[in-house]
Amino acid sequence: MNGADSGVVAGKWYIGGMWVRGLCAECNSFAGAQYDTAYGDFATRLWQWLQVGTRVALPSTQPVSLAPGRVSRAILSGMLGISPHVRVLHPSLADQMYKGGPVALPGGLSLRVAIYPGKAAMLAGPMLTGLLDGSSGAINTLATVTFRPLSWALVTTDTDDMLAARGWIDATDWLRYEDDREAHDLRWLAPHGLPVVHTILHSPSNDGMQLYSKDIAPLMRGRIP
């Protein structure tokens, strides 16, 4: 099936990062002021540690500090921008983010995270990948953000168990931390360390079939030089 038959139109590659017009100016400014610096600091420290870890035998638990509440809410605010459909399905989630402070995910959802050291990047809204391994399993996500050094997924209960079996850390409780919790040791939040994944969820492969609607699932792929 070619692109014309499938209804999928290939996009263009642009230099200048990955972004979407998904949040209003007020929410975007609030997220930037409250959360983005904390996320950037954590990502920088983690990446620096990983670069050393490729040359020196270091323990699997990463001795990196972070503000778990602000880091997790930074990624969740981005997911609400990438996937406006989440705000339709779970309006209480958007209301909590607008008020600021700790967030409780609606029942049936969880936030998962893993280390991703690759150069490819992807932002995606609701997608489902049916596994072709005879298990009848599927990876069902409402939003995913993969940008070195981390990969995040807002997942439904059925997929939560599958990612847990693959070692992805449950970061749902990170959302409950107050903004003023500046430093927390990652080794306490993830005693066995964050797992390293080398493939992006929903990447085209012979092991699965990707299903999504271009009307509700924005999909952006990029590459870090």
Rank of each mutant, 00 (worst) to 15 (best):
A67T: 01
M220Y: 07
P218E: 10
A143P: 06
D36V: 06
Y98D: 13
T144Y: 08
V64H: 03
A121K: 05
P59W: 07
I115M: 06
L211P: 01
L50I: 07
R181L: 13
A124L: 09
L66P: 10
V88G: 00
M220P: 01
V86L: 13
P102S: 11
F30Y: 12
F147R: 13
Y212M: 10
L105Q: 04
T37G: 04
V196C: 02
G40N: 01
L131V: 14
P63E: 00
P68G: 05
A165F: 08
S92Y: 04
M220G: 04
M79T: 00
N140M: 06
C24Y: 12
G16N: 02
W47T: 02
G11K: 02
M97L: 15
W188F: 13
G16D: 08
H198R: 14
R181K: 04
L132T: 14
F42A: 02
T129S: 15
I139R: 11
A38H: 08
V20Y: 03
Y98P: 03
D161T: 14
T159P: 09
G118Q: 12
Q51A: 06
T172S: 15
G125V: 09
I115L: 13
M209N: 12
A114L: 08
A74E: 01
P195R: 13
V145L: 08
W19P: 00
D41N: 01
V155S: 15
A114T: 08
A25M: 10
L80Q: 00
G222C: 08
R21P: 02
P106S: 05
Y212L: 10
V20W: 02
L189R: 14
G53H: 02
A33Q: 14
V145P: 01
A138P: 00
W174Y: 12
G22E: 03
D207G: 06
P195T: 07
M1W: 05
F147K: 10
V103A: 13
D36Y: 02
M1H: 03
M122P: 01
V8F: 15
W152Q: 01
L109N: 02
G7R: 14
D95L: 10
S151I: 02
M127K: 12
Q210G: 07
R55E: 14
H198W: 03
V197S: 11
D5W: 04
G137I: 00
I15C: 05
D133F: 04
A57D: 15
L189Y: 14
A38P: 00
L175C: 15
A94H: 05
R176H: 06
V113Y: 04
A4L: 15
P117C: 12
V196H: 10
D179T: 03
R148P: 00
P106W: 11
L175N: 14
V20Q: 00
E182V: 10
T172L: 01
T129G: 09
T37R: 14
P59M: 04
V8T: 10
